[in-house]
Design a protein around this nucleic acid. Structure first.
Lengths: 238, 238
DNA sequence: TGCAGAAACTTCACGGCGTATAGTTTCTGC
DNA sequence: GCAGAAACTATACGCCGTGAAGTTTCTGCA
Protein backbone atom coordinates (compact mmCIF):
# COMPACT_ATOMS: atom_id res chain seq x y z
CA UNK A 1 0.00 0.00 0.00
CA UNK A 2 0.87 3.60 -0.29
CA UNK A 3 0.76 3.98 3.46
CA UNK A 4 3.41 1.45 4.30
CA UNK A 5 5.17 2.26 1.05
CA UNK A 6 5.49 5.90 2.00
CA UNK A 7 6.41 5.29 5.58
CA UNK A 8 8.83 2.68 4.35
CA UNK A 9 10.38 5.18 2.02
CA UNK A 10 11.01 7.72 4.76
CA UNK A 11 12.46 5.05 6.98
CA UNK A 12 14.64 3.77 4.21
CA UNK A 13 16.02 7.22 3.47
CA UNK A 14 16.60 7.73 7.14
CA UNK A 15 18.45 4.46 7.44
CA UNK A 16 20.52 5.29 4.38
CA UNK A 17 21.49 8.68 5.74
CA UNK A 18 22.40 7.16 9.10
CA UNK A 19 24.54 4.61 7.32
CA UNK A 20 26.22 7.30 5.25
CA UNK A 21 27.02 9.35 8.34
CA UNK A 22 28.68 6.34 9.91
CA UNK A 23 30.47 5.44 6.70
CA UNK A 24 31.86 8.94 6.25
CA UNK A 25 32.83 9.09 9.92
CA UNK A 26 34.71 5.82 9.64
CA UNK A 27 36.50 6.91 6.47
CA UNK A 28 37.55 10.13 8.17
CA UNK A 29 38.79 8.07 11.09
CA UNK A 30 40.69 5.65 8.87
CA UNK A 31 42.35 8.54 7.06
CA UNK A 32 43.15 10.89 9.93
CA UNK A 33 42.46 9.09 13.18
CA UNK A 34 39.60 9.19 15.64
CA UNK A 35 40.17 12.90 16.25
CA UNK A 36 39.02 13.61 12.73
CA UNK A 37 35.51 12.42 13.55
CA UNK A 38 33.85 15.81 13.75
CA UNK A 39 30.26 16.55 12.95
CA UNK A 40 31.26 19.48 10.79
CA UNK A 41 33.72 17.44 8.74
CA UNK A 42 31.16 14.69 8.23
CA UNK A 43 28.52 17.20 7.20
CA UNK A 44 30.95 18.93 4.85
CA UNK A 45 31.72 15.61 3.21
CA UNK A 46 28.01 14.93 2.83
CA UNK A 47 27.04 18.37 1.58
CA UNK A 48 24.98 19.05 4.66
CA UNK A 49 24.96 21.30 7.66
CA UNK A 50 26.54 19.99 10.83
CA UNK A 51 23.28 20.48 12.68
CA UNK A 52 21.49 18.12 10.32
CA UNK A 53 23.35 15.27 11.98
CA UNK A 54 21.52 16.03 15.18
CA UNK A 55 18.46 14.55 13.53
CA UNK A 56 20.26 11.20 13.53
CA UNK A 57 22.43 11.29 16.63
CA UNK A 58 21.58 13.35 19.70
CA UNK A 59 25.21 14.30 20.35
CA UNK A 60 28.61 13.65 18.89
CA UNK A 61 29.36 11.27 21.74
CA UNK A 62 26.38 9.15 20.77
CA UNK A 63 27.72 8.91 17.25
CA UNK A 64 31.13 7.94 18.58
CA UNK A 65 29.59 5.34 20.87
CA UNK A 66 27.75 3.84 17.90
CA UNK A 67 30.95 3.79 15.89
CA UNK A 68 32.84 2.09 18.71
CA UNK A 69 30.10 -0.49 18.82
CA UNK A 70 30.30 -1.14 15.08
CA UNK A 71 34.08 -1.27 15.01
CA UNK A 72 34.34 -3.43 18.12
CA UNK A 73 31.77 -5.77 16.60
CA UNK A 74 33.87 -5.98 13.45
CA UNK A 75 36.85 -6.95 15.58
CA UNK A 76 34.80 -9.54 17.44
CA UNK A 77 33.57 -10.92 14.11
CA UNK A 78 37.12 -11.16 12.83
CA UNK A 79 38.44 -13.16 15.77
CA UNK A 80 35.31 -15.29 16.05
CA UNK A 81 35.53 -16.16 12.38
CA UNK A 82 39.19 -17.06 12.68
CA UNK A 83 38.35 -19.30 15.61
CA UNK A 84 35.40 -20.98 13.98
CA UNK A 85 37.00 -21.57 10.61
CA UNK A 86 40.08 -23.17 12.12
CA UNK A 87 39.78 -26.90 12.76
CA UNK A 88 39.55 -27.64 16.44
CA UNK A 89 41.71 -30.74 16.44
CA UNK A 90 44.91 -28.93 17.37
CA UNK A 91 44.28 -26.26 20.01
CA UNK A 92 47.64 -24.62 19.30
CA UNK A 93 46.69 -23.92 15.72
CA UNK A 94 43.32 -22.62 16.74
CA UNK A 95 44.67 -20.34 19.44
CA UNK A 96 47.29 -19.01 17.09
CA UNK A 97 44.62 -18.35 14.50
CA UNK A 98 42.64 -16.33 17.03
CA UNK A 99 45.63 -14.34 18.21
CA UNK A 100 46.90 -13.65 14.73
CA UNK A 101 43.45 -12.53 13.65
CA UNK A 102 43.43 -10.14 16.59
CA UNK A 103 46.79 -8.65 15.74
CA UNK A 104 46.16 -8.56 12.01
CA UNK A 105 42.86 -6.78 12.49
CA UNK A 106 44.58 -4.21 14.69
CA UNK A 107 47.36 -3.62 12.18
CA UNK A 108 44.89 -3.28 9.31
CA UNK A 109 42.60 -1.03 11.36
CA UNK A 110 44.97 0.84 13.64
CA UNK A 111 42.64 3.81 13.99
CA UNK A 112 39.81 1.45 14.81
CA UNK A 113 41.92 -0.14 17.51
CA UNK A 114 42.63 3.31 18.93
CA UNK A 115 38.95 4.15 18.76
CA UNK A 116 38.01 1.04 20.72
CA UNK A 117 40.76 0.89 23.28
CA UNK A 118 42.18 4.39 23.51
CA UNK A 119 40.81 7.79 24.39
CA UNK A 120 38.74 7.91 21.26
CA UNK A 121 38.03 11.58 20.79
CA UNK A 122 38.60 14.81 22.70
CA UNK A 123 36.26 15.01 25.64
CA UNK A 124 34.46 11.79 24.81
CA UNK A 125 32.73 10.27 27.81
CA UNK A 126 31.90 6.61 27.46
CA UNK A 127 28.38 5.71 28.57
CA UNK A 128 27.84 3.65 31.69
CA UNK A 129 28.90 0.06 31.23
CA UNK A 130 31.27 1.00 28.43
CA UNK A 131 30.57 1.95 24.85
CA UNK A 132 30.32 -1.54 23.38
CA UNK A 133 29.63 -4.01 26.18
CA UNK A 134 28.31 -6.72 23.88
CA UNK A 135 31.29 -6.77 21.57
CA UNK A 136 33.67 -6.64 24.52
CA UNK A 137 31.82 -9.60 26.01
CA UNK A 138 32.11 -11.50 22.77
CA UNK A 139 35.85 -10.99 22.71
CA UNK A 140 36.18 -12.08 26.33
CA UNK A 141 33.96 -15.07 25.74
CA UNK A 142 36.14 -15.93 22.77
CA UNK A 143 39.17 -15.69 24.99
CA UNK A 144 37.55 -18.02 27.46
CA UNK A 145 37.02 -20.44 24.60
CA UNK A 146 40.79 -20.32 24.06
CA UNK A 147 41.36 -21.08 27.69
CA UNK A 148 38.79 -23.87 27.57
CA UNK A 149 40.48 -25.42 24.56
CA UNK A 150 43.79 -25.31 26.34
CA UNK A 151 42.47 -26.30 29.73
CA UNK A 152 42.95 -30.07 29.38
CA UNK A 153 46.65 -29.37 28.86
CA UNK A 154 46.93 -26.42 31.21
CA UNK A 155 44.86 -27.37 34.23
CA UNK A 156 47.65 -29.11 36.09
CA UNK A 157 49.72 -25.91 35.85
CA UNK A 158 47.10 -23.88 37.70
CA UNK A 159 46.28 -26.19 40.60
CA UNK A 160 46.82 -23.73 43.40
CA UNK A 161 44.76 -20.94 41.89
CA UNK A 162 43.38 -18.37 44.28
CA UNK A 163 40.44 -17.32 42.12
CA UNK A 164 36.81 -17.93 42.74
CA UNK A 165 33.69 -16.91 40.85
CA UNK A 166 33.17 -13.76 42.87
CA UNK A 167 36.32 -12.36 41.31
CA UNK A 168 34.58 -11.94 37.99
CA UNK A 169 31.78 -9.86 36.61
CA UNK A 170 28.43 -11.66 36.80
CA UNK A 171 27.61 -10.55 33.26
CA UNK A 172 30.72 -12.26 31.99
CA UNK A 173 30.06 -15.45 33.90
CA UNK A 174 26.50 -15.50 32.62
CA UNK A 175 27.91 -15.91 29.14
CA UNK A 176 30.84 -18.08 30.00
CA UNK A 177 29.66 -20.63 32.52
CA UNK A 178 26.79 -22.06 30.48
CA UNK A 179 29.08 -22.35 27.48
CA UNK A 180 31.85 -24.09 29.43
CA UNK A 181 30.22 -25.71 32.46
CA UNK A 182 33.30 -27.55 33.64
CA UNK A 183 35.64 -24.59 33.50
CA UNK A 184 36.96 -23.35 36.87
CA UNK A 185 37.57 -19.72 37.83
CA UNK A 186 41.28 -20.18 37.26
CA UNK A 187 40.63 -20.68 33.56
CA UNK A 188 38.74 -17.41 33.28
CA UNK A 189 41.62 -15.65 35.02
CA UNK A 190 43.96 -17.28 32.54
CA UNK A 191 41.81 -15.99 29.68
CA UNK A 192 41.96 -12.44 30.99
CA UNK A 193 45.69 -12.68 31.47
CA UNK A 194 46.14 -13.86 27.89
CA UNK A 195 43.98 -10.95 26.81
CA UNK A 196 46.33 -8.64 28.65
CA UNK A 197 49.41 -10.18 27.04
CA UNK A 198 48.09 -9.93 23.51
CA UNK A 199 46.53 -6.53 24.03
CA UNK A 200 49.77 -5.17 25.41
CA UNK A 201 51.99 -6.35 22.60
CA UNK A 202 49.52 -5.28 19.94
CA UNK A 203 48.80 -1.90 21.43
CA UNK A 204 52.47 -1.09 21.93
CA UNK A 205 52.89 -1.95 18.26
CA UNK A 206 49.84 -0.01 17.06
CA UNK A 207 50.75 3.07 19.07
CA UNK A 208 54.30 2.96 17.73
CA UNK A 209 56.05 2.35 21.03
CA UNK A 210 57.62 -0.87 19.75
CA UNK A 211 58.98 0.68 16.58
CA UNK A 212 61.71 2.42 18.55
CA UNK A 213 62.79 -0.86 20.18
CA UNK A 214 62.48 -3.69 17.72
CA UNK A 215 62.57 -3.90 13.97
CA UNK A 216 60.49 -7.05 13.84
CA UNK A 217 57.38 -6.90 16.00
CA UNK A 218 56.00 -9.72 13.89
CA UNK A 219 58.75 -12.04 15.07
CA UNK A 220 58.20 -10.92 18.63
CA UNK A 221 54.52 -11.73 18.40
CA UNK A 222 55.14 -15.17 16.94
CA UNK A 223 57.62 -15.84 19.75
CA UNK A 224 54.91 -14.75 22.14
CA UNK A 225 52.53 -17.30 20.66
CA UNK A 226 55.11 -20.05 20.80
CA UNK A 227 55.79 -19.30 24.45
CA UNK A 228 52.07 -19.03 25.11
CA UNK A 229 51.69 -22.65 24.05
CA UNK A 230 54.43 -23.50 26.50
CA UNK A 231 52.57 -21.63 29.23
CA UNK A 232 49.43 -23.56 28.35
CA UNK A 233 51.21 -26.87 28.38
CA UNK A 234 50.26 -27.49 24.77
CA UNK A 235 52.83 -29.59 22.93
CA UNK A 236 54.40 -27.70 20.06
CA UNK A 237 53.17 -28.94 16.71
CA UNK A 238 55.56 -29.51 13.85
CA UNK B 1 77.59 41.78 39.74
CA UNK B 2 74.58 43.58 38.49
CA UNK B 3 75.15 42.26 35.00
CA UNK B 4 75.00 38.59 35.78
CA UNK B 5 72.58 39.33 38.58
CA UNK B 6 70.15 40.98 36.21
CA UNK B 7 70.50 38.41 33.47
CA UNK B 8 70.17 35.76 36.13
CA UNK B 9 67.00 37.35 37.34
CA UNK B 10 65.34 37.31 33.92
CA UNK B 11 66.35 33.73 33.42
CA UNK B 12 65.10 32.76 36.82
CA UNK B 13 61.72 34.36 36.22
CA UNK B 14 61.55 32.68 32.88
CA UNK B 15 62.34 29.31 34.38
CA UNK B 16 59.75 29.87 37.08
CA UNK B 17 57.06 30.75 34.57
CA UNK B 18 57.96 27.74 32.45
CA UNK B 19 57.72 25.56 35.52
CA UNK B 20 54.38 27.06 36.47
CA UNK B 21 52.97 26.45 32.99
CA UNK B 22 53.95 22.82 33.23
CA UNK B 23 52.68 22.50 36.78
CA UNK B 24 49.30 23.98 35.88
CA UNK B 25 49.12 21.83 32.76
CA UNK B 26 49.80 18.69 34.78
CA UNK B 27 47.22 19.61 37.39
CA UNK B 28 44.62 20.18 34.68
CA UNK B 29 45.57 16.81 33.23
CA UNK B 30 45.33 15.05 36.58
CA UNK B 31 41.90 16.57 37.20
CA UNK B 32 40.30 16.26 33.79
CA UNK B 33 42.55 14.16 31.60
CA UNK B 34 45.03 14.99 28.87
CA UNK B 35 42.29 16.64 26.81
CA UNK B 36 42.07 19.39 29.40
CA UNK B 37 45.59 20.55 28.59
CA UNK B 38 44.66 23.66 26.64
CA UNK B 39 46.70 26.79 26.35
CA UNK B 40 43.67 28.93 27.18
CA UNK B 41 42.84 26.98 30.33
CA UNK B 42 46.44 27.13 31.52
CA UNK B 43 46.59 30.85 30.86
CA UNK B 44 43.25 31.40 32.60
CA UNK B 45 44.56 29.56 35.65
CA UNK B 46 47.70 31.70 35.64
CA UNK B 47 45.97 35.01 35.06
CA UNK B 48 47.56 35.40 31.66
CA UNK B 49 46.62 35.49 28.03
CA UNK B 50 46.85 32.28 26.07
CA UNK B 51 49.24 33.85 23.62
CA UNK B 52 51.71 34.63 26.39
CA UNK B 53 52.47 30.91 26.53
CA UNK B 54 53.89 31.15 23.03
CA UNK B 55 56.81 32.94 24.58
CA UNK B 56 57.67 29.71 26.38
CA UNK B 57 56.54 26.97 24.02
CA UNK B 58 56.38 27.45 20.25
CA UNK B 59 53.18 25.40 19.92
CA UNK B 60 50.83 23.44 22.12
CA UNK B 61 52.32 20.22 20.77
CA UNK B 62 55.74 21.27 22.02
CA UNK B 63 54.29 21.80 25.48
CA UNK B 64 52.63 18.40 25.34
CA UNK B 65 55.86 16.78 24.19
CA UNK B 66 57.67 18.34 27.13
CA UNK B 67 54.98 17.12 29.50
CA UNK B 68 55.18 13.61 28.10
CA UNK B 69 58.90 13.74 28.65
CA UNK B 70 58.51 14.86 32.27
CA UNK B 71 55.80 12.36 33.06
CA UNK B 72 57.55 9.47 31.33
CA UNK B 73 60.70 10.37 33.23
CA UNK B 74 58.74 10.25 36.49
CA UNK B 75 57.53 6.77 35.57
CA UNK B 76 61.07 5.69 34.70
CA UNK B 77 62.28 7.10 38.02
CA UNK B 78 59.58 5.19 39.90
CA UNK B 79 60.44 1.82 38.41
CA UNK B 80 64.19 2.42 38.54
CA UNK B 81 63.93 3.34 42.21
CA UNK B 82 61.85 0.27 42.98
CA UNK B 83 64.46 -1.85 41.24
CA UNK B 84 67.43 -0.26 42.89
CA UNK B 85 66.04 -0.18 46.40
CA UNK B 86 65.08 -3.83 46.34
CA UNK B 87 67.82 -6.23 47.35
CA UNK B 88 69.13 -8.15 44.40
CA UNK B 89 69.54 -11.49 46.15
CA UNK B 90 66.15 -12.84 45.11
CA UNK B 91 65.38 -11.96 41.48
CA UNK B 92 61.70 -12.81 41.98
CA UNK B 93 61.32 -10.18 44.67
CA UNK B 94 63.14 -7.65 42.60
CA UNK B 95 61.14 -8.28 39.45
CA UNK B 96 57.92 -8.13 41.39
CA UNK B 97 59.00 -4.84 42.91
CA UNK B 98 59.60 -3.42 39.45
CA UNK B 99 56.30 -4.66 38.07
CA UNK B 100 54.30 -3.52 41.06
CA UNK B 101 55.93 -0.11 40.90
CA UNK B 102 54.92 0.10 37.24
CA UNK B 103 51.30 -0.80 37.92
CA UNK B 104 51.06 1.32 41.07
CA UNK B 105 52.43 4.35 39.27
CA UNK B 106 49.87 3.84 36.51
CA UNK B 107 46.98 3.53 38.95
CA UNK B 108 48.09 6.60 40.89
CA UNK B 109 48.68 8.58 37.69
CA UNK B 110 46.12 7.19 35.26
CA UNK B 111 45.97 10.38 33.24
CA UNK B 112 49.75 10.41 33.06
CA UNK B 113 49.68 6.86 31.76
CA UNK B 114 47.17 7.91 29.10
CA UNK B 115 49.33 10.90 28.23
CA UNK B 116 52.38 8.72 27.72
CA UNK B 117 50.90 5.70 26.03
CA UNK B 118 47.62 6.84 24.51
CA UNK B 119 46.55 9.45 22.02
CA UNK B 120 47.44 12.27 24.35
CA UNK B 121 45.51 15.20 23.02
CA UNK B 122 43.34 16.00 20.00
CA UNK B 123 45.46 16.36 16.93
CA UNK B 124 48.74 15.91 18.75
CA UNK B 125 51.52 14.75 16.48
CA UNK B 126 54.46 13.19 18.24
CA UNK B 127 57.84 14.42 17.03
CA UNK B 128 60.14 12.14 15.09
CA UNK B 129 61.62 9.43 17.28
CA UNK B 130 58.76 9.68 19.75
CA UNK B 131 58.03 12.29 22.37
CA UNK B 132 60.22 10.93 25.15
CA UNK B 133 62.83 8.63 23.65
CA UNK B 134 65.16 8.83 26.63
CA UNK B 135 62.58 7.86 29.22
CA UNK B 136 61.27 5.09 26.99
CA UNK B 137 64.81 3.82 26.65
CA UNK B 138 65.27 3.89 30.39
CA UNK B 139 62.15 1.78 30.88
CA UNK B 140 63.27 -0.69 28.23
CA UNK B 141 66.73 -0.85 29.69
CA UNK B 142 65.16 -1.49 33.07
CA UNK B 143 63.15 -4.30 31.53
CA UNK B 144 66.30 -5.76 30.11
CA UNK B 145 67.76 -5.67 33.60
CA UNK B 146 64.80 -7.79 34.68
CA UNK B 147 65.51 -10.24 31.92
CA UNK B 148 69.20 -10.24 32.81
CA UNK B 149 68.44 -10.98 36.44
CA UNK B 150 66.23 -13.85 35.40
CA UNK B 151 68.46 -15.11 32.64
CA UNK B 152 70.49 -17.59 34.69
CA UNK B 153 67.20 -19.33 35.50
CA UNK B 154 65.48 -18.71 32.17
CA UNK B 155 68.19 -19.31 29.58
CA UNK B 156 67.56 -23.01 29.19
CA UNK B 157 63.91 -22.26 28.36
CA UNK B 158 64.89 -20.14 25.37
CA UNK B 159 67.49 -22.31 23.71
CA UNK B 160 65.99 -22.38 20.25
CA UNK B 161 65.44 -18.65 19.98
CA UNK B 162 65.21 -17.20 16.49
CA UNK B 163 66.30 -13.70 17.41
CA UNK B 164 69.48 -11.98 16.49
CA UNK B 165 70.80 -8.49 17.16
CA UNK B 166 69.50 -7.09 13.89
CA UNK B 167 65.98 -7.57 15.21
CA UNK B 168 66.41 -4.71 17.63
CA UNK B 169 66.90 -0.99 17.42
CA UNK B 170 70.57 -0.01 17.46
CA UNK B 171 69.83 2.77 19.95
CA UNK B 172 68.42 0.24 22.37
CA UNK B 173 71.32 -2.16 21.98
CA UNK B 174 73.76 0.68 22.49
CA UNK B 175 72.38 1.06 26.00
CA UNK B 176 71.78 -2.57 26.71
CA UNK B 177 74.74 -4.48 25.41
CA UNK B 178 77.43 -2.62 27.31
CA UNK B 179 75.40 -2.95 30.49
CA UNK B 180 74.83 -6.68 30.03
CA UNK B 181 77.62 -7.96 27.80
CA UNK B 182 76.73 -11.63 28.12
CA UNK B 183 73.05 -11.27 27.35
CA UNK B 184 71.88 -12.84 24.08
CA UNK B 185 69.23 -11.41 21.73
CA UNK B 186 66.68 -13.85 23.11
CA UNK B 187 66.82 -12.11 26.48
CA UNK B 188 66.05 -8.74 24.93
CA UNK B 189 63.10 -10.28 23.13
CA UNK B 190 61.98 -11.70 26.45
CA UNK B 191 62.23 -8.26 28.02
CA UNK B 192 60.05 -6.73 25.32
CA UNK B 193 57.51 -9.52 25.68
CA UNK B 194 57.33 -8.96 29.42
CA UNK B 195 56.83 -5.28 28.71
CA UNK B 196 53.91 -6.18 26.49
CA UNK B 197 52.35 -8.43 29.12
CA UNK B 198 52.55 -5.86 31.89
CA UNK B 199 51.58 -2.96 29.66
CA UNK B 200 48.55 -4.85 28.41
CA UNK B 201 47.18 -5.78 31.81
CA UNK B 202 47.84 -2.34 33.24
CA UNK B 203 46.44 -0.43 30.29
CA UNK B 204 43.28 -2.53 30.16
CA UNK B 205 42.88 -1.71 33.84
CA UNK B 206 43.67 1.99 33.51
CA UNK B 207 41.35 2.42 30.53
CA UNK B 208 38.57 0.65 32.38
CA UNK B 209 38.26 -2.33 30.05
CA UNK B 210 38.95 -4.77 32.88
CA UNK B 211 36.39 -3.31 35.22
CA UNK B 212 33.59 -4.88 33.20
CA UNK B 213 35.20 -8.32 33.41
CA UNK B 214 36.84 -8.78 36.77
CA UNK B 215 36.24 -7.33 40.19
CA UNK B 216 39.81 -7.88 41.32
CA UNK B 217 42.37 -6.71 38.81
CA UNK B 218 44.86 -6.63 41.64
CA UNK B 219 44.54 -10.38 42.13
CA UNK B 220 44.87 -10.89 38.40
CA UNK B 221 48.07 -8.90 38.31
CA UNK B 222 49.59 -10.79 41.23
CA UNK B 223 48.68 -14.05 39.50
CA UNK B 224 50.40 -12.68 36.42
CA UNK B 225 53.56 -12.06 38.42
CA UNK B 226 53.48 -15.49 39.98
CA UNK B 227 53.12 -17.07 36.56
CA UNK B 228 55.82 -14.79 35.19
CA UNK B 229 58.27 -16.30 37.66
CA UNK B 230 57.21 -19.69 36.37
CA UNK B 231 57.86 -18.53 32.81
CA UNK B 232 61.28 -17.30 33.87
CA UNK B 233 62.11 -20.53 35.63
CA UNK B 234 62.57 -18.70 38.91
CA UNK B 235 61.72 -20.81 41.93
CA UNK B 236 58.82 -19.40 43.89
CA UNK B 237 59.93 -17.93 47.18
CA UNK B 238 58.01 -18.54 50.34
C1' DT C 1 70.92 58.75 34.89
C1' DG C 2 68.72 58.27 30.53
C1' DC C 3 67.58 55.72 26.75
C1' DA C 4 67.68 52.17 22.81
C1' DG C 5 66.34 47.72 22.31
C1' DA C 6 64.91 43.36 23.74
C1' DA C 7 61.77 40.61 26.18
C1' DA C 8 57.13 39.79 28.05
C1' DC C 9 52.72 40.33 27.46
C1' DT C 10 48.05 41.94 25.45
C1' DT C 11 44.66 42.84 21.85
C1' DC C 12 42.42 41.59 17.87
C1' DA C 13 41.39 38.41 14.39
C1' DC C 14 40.56 33.93 11.85
C1' DG C 15 38.91 29.46 11.22
C1' DG C 16 37.69 25.21 13.52
C1' DC C 17 34.89 22.73 16.96
C1' DG C 18 30.03 21.03 19.55
C1' DT C 19 25.59 22.44 20.12
C1' DA C 20 21.29 25.28 21.44
C1' DT C 21 17.42 27.96 19.33
C1' DA C 22 14.63 29.42 15.83
C1' DG C 23 13.21 29.45 11.20
C1' DT C 24 12.51 27.23 6.58
C1' DT C 25 11.68 23.79 3.24
C1' DT C 26 9.96 19.31 1.84
C1' DC C 27 7.40 15.34 2.25
C1' DT C 28 3.32 12.42 4.08
C1' DG C 29 -1.21 10.91 4.90
C1' DC C 30 -5.78 12.23 5.35
C1' DG D 1 -5.31 20.28 -1.16
C1' DC D 2 -3.69 20.99 3.10
C1' DA D 3 -2.32 20.41 8.21
C1' DG D 4 1.42 18.70 10.40
C1' DA D 5 5.53 16.23 10.88
C1' DA D 6 10.07 15.47 9.47
C1' DA D 7 14.40 17.14 7.51
C1' DC D 8 17.23 20.57 7.13
C1' DT D 9 19.36 25.52 7.37
C1' DA D 10 20.70 29.96 9.64
C1' DT D 11 22.43 32.22 13.37
C1' DA D 12 24.71 32.45 17.57
C1' DC D 13 27.60 31.25 21.74
C1' DG D 14 31.57 29.79 23.92
C1' DC D 15 35.32 26.87 23.49
C1' DC D 16 39.93 25.82 20.98
C1' DG D 17 45.06 26.86 18.56
C1' DT D 18 47.48 30.35 16.56
C1' DG D 19 49.12 34.44 13.63
C1' DA D 20 50.00 39.61 13.41
C1' DA D 21 50.47 43.81 15.46
C1' DG D 22 50.69 46.73 19.32
C1' DT D 23 51.96 47.86 24.23
C1' DT D 24 54.27 47.66 28.47
C1' DT D 25 58.25 46.48 31.26
C1' DC D 26 62.79 45.38 32.05
C1' DT D 27 67.99 45.42 30.93
C1' DG D 28 72.46 46.90 29.95
C1' DC D 29 75.19 50.37 28.10
C1' DA D 30 76.37 55.60 27.20
Amino acid sequence: MTVTGSRGRRERLRAETTAEIKKVALSLMAKSGPDAITLRAIAREMGMTANAIYGYFPTRDDLVTTLINDVYTALADAVDTAWETTPSADPAVRIEAWANAFRTWALVNPQGFRLIYGDPVPGYQAPEGGPAPDAARRVCTGLTALAAAAWPYARHLYQDSVFDWSDFDPGLLEKVRPAFPDLPPAAVALALRIWGHLHGLVSLEVYGHMRTQTTSPEKLFQEELAQLMQTLGIPRRR
